[in-house]
Design a protein around this nucleic acid. Structure first.
Lengths: 345, 345
DNA sequence: TTGTAGGCGTTATCAG
DNA sequence: CTGATAACGCCTACAA
């Protein structure tokens, strides 16, 4: 019934617990034969060390955690895979943790630091409008990956790796304008968002302004909190409702590819064609966009680089206490089949 | 530097540790005012109990774990969400754990049981060709959700909730045959799969046989282990290669929607139309299929029911030691826009 | 209602 | 190279 402990193994092998511990943890000071014996007994008796006890005692677990907000977002999946590899290479162990939309990721981080003796944290997704005070409680280095925090948080207390959301959004909007679009519906984050949603919205507005197009507030549509954030469903429902209003528009620029796909389907369901009647553009450049019909024009984030550099930056901060960096990568405008010059007439 | 412990809190409040413990854990025997005081100090000093220490001591954590294989599979995301709710309702805590494609999920489970004092486990995804011996090491009840294990494992040692993969696959194949298709390419699991892949393949073959169509081995294509299992990319690359062979076919039936979507894109890229030239059907009935263009015809698994029943079954097994059930739900054939009658001529 | 002390399974320290 | 033994932070009898 009860499971076997290190003491049992020690007793069975006729050695002390510390010797068993040494065998488990690959300590150098141990006789090869005793080690062999111990390892064999462990195998036959199927002993598994209790990790809680280990973490309790261990000063350093050489572990870092990735906190992901938005379990369904395929954009993150890829990033996580790359990060996993990098972390393994550094001989660290990874704690991957999903946090629900409404849950406070910093609370979770605080908890995890205690529990797992983390050396550092990567935050993936979320809005990150936390107070400085709260962030300072995080005693280990952390990096915001693909999250542009607004200026409310002093940049000396954290690292970040991302694209310039303002600029890339500007780029995409300008691209659409240059195709002749002047009535561009923008699907943005929830009302009151102060993170990437806000930055991309600003980029959208500035681009219009620079192109001499007046910003029409009615064309700016927020995600509906009834549905999952950044999801296809959200994009679909929003767009469907928007179409019912009869407001004129010739293009959609959504702040995620999933939203863009939802929008596309809604437009098609309403009897229009993409891109013939309406052009649609997204953001992120996820694989799905390449498999969708039509291929979604998107602002591709360099996932690979961002992932690698996030880990790199974190390790630098770990080794070099208090060294915080903010790295910005260039996005790439991927022309798909979902955008074209505005229809004449 | 060092983080605050229960002793510190006790000292600060001028009480004993057990009192603090009682305050934290909502024990009844405690003075309201002292409790208030303690809770406040905890807040201001930002004390967080060390979970490792807790789990070490606790006999029972009222926790169950979900082990998911295939982080990118959106089919699972939805299921997890529902399960989370159910588990919360039962006042259990949930440990959600992803396991890599090559990793042995039972090993992970064994580890987790020790570490977290689990009461039960849900397995989601994977192939499950483990030995009976290994499975017996799992001392807590477990249920295979949407995994039909083959008969190699005695049914008395586990529970399962899923559709009848053979039957549903038969249903879809028959549907395609009735549309007049006789040359149906089948995208199946890796060579040697003995789990749902095998069952669905059997269903496909039996249906053809019953319809008087000879099974053509050349039309059966396995996933390529170069790419992620069940992914769009896998479907795309496989189909692309298949098309190059010039083998004649008028329909594709893939064992997942993601594979089907990849196949669709490959077919379109080759200059054919779906469903005009080739019909495509998938399996699972994920949301994405509804947003794709064309909407993917699929065999929809009743995610909601399966998720709820999985949890239900697990709790019954927990409360009722050794009571194992095998529940089967009916799938639904969702006609999309990706299939139609075979082209005449 | 409260405090003291012992132990959960490991690892680290230090003396053999 | 090896084995006692003292922590790690918390919970829970048991005593007060």
């Amino acid at each position: 019934m009860e499971s076997i402990t290190i003491k049992d193994v020690a007793r069975i092998c006729g050695v002390g617990v510390s010797t068993v511990s040494r065998a488990i943890n690959n300590h150098p000071d141990i006789n090869v034969d005793t080690k062999k014996l111990i390892l064999e007994t462990i195998k036959t008796y199927n002993y598994i060390p209790n990790d809680s006890a280990r973490n309790l005692k261990r000063v350093d677990a050489r572990a870092i955690a990735i906190l992901v907000k938005g379990i369904t977002n395929p954009f993150f999946s890829k990033m996580i895979k790359i990060m996993e590899k990098e972390i393994q290479q550094k001989k660290y162990s990874l704690i991957l943790h999903h946090v629900e939309d409404e849950v406070d990721e910093v609370e979770v981080a605080l908890q995890l630091i205690k529990e797992k003796r983390l050396r550092g944290i990567i935050f993936l997704g979320g809005y990150f409008s936390h107070t400085e005070k709260k962030l300072r409680q995080l005693r280990v280095p952390f990096v915001l990956s693909t999250i542009s925090a607004t200026d409310l948080i002093p940049r000396e207390i954290y690292s970040s790796v991302c694209v310039d959301d303002f600029k890339e959004s500007y780029k995409m909007t300008k691209y659409l304008c240059e195709l002749g679009h002047t009535k561009i519906m923008h699907i943005t984050a929830h009302e009151g968002d102060k993170s990437i949603g806000r930055l991309r919205l600003n980029g959208y507005m500035k681009a219009l302004e620079d192109m001499g197009i007046e910003v029409d507030q009615e064309l700016i549509v927020h995600m509906d909190s009834m549905y999952e954030a950044y999801s296809m469903e959200n994009g679909y429902e929003i767009t469907k409702k928007f179409l019912q209003k009869g407001k004129e528009f010739t293009a959609v620029f959504a702040i995620s590819d999933q939203l863009a796909i939802g929008a596309t389907r809604a437009i098609i369901d309403a009897g229009y064609q993409v891109p013939k009647d309406v052009s649609v553009a997204g953001f992120d450049g996820i694989d799905l966009g390449r498999y969708y019909c039509p291929r979604i024009t998107s602002l591709k984030q360099p996932v690979d680089q961002i992932a690698k550099e996030s880990i790199q930056t974190l390790f630098e901060a770990i080794e070099n206490k208090n060294k915080h960096e903010h790295k910005i990568f260039e996005g790439e405008l991927l022309e798909g089949e979902s955008t074209r010059e505005v229809k004449k007439g």
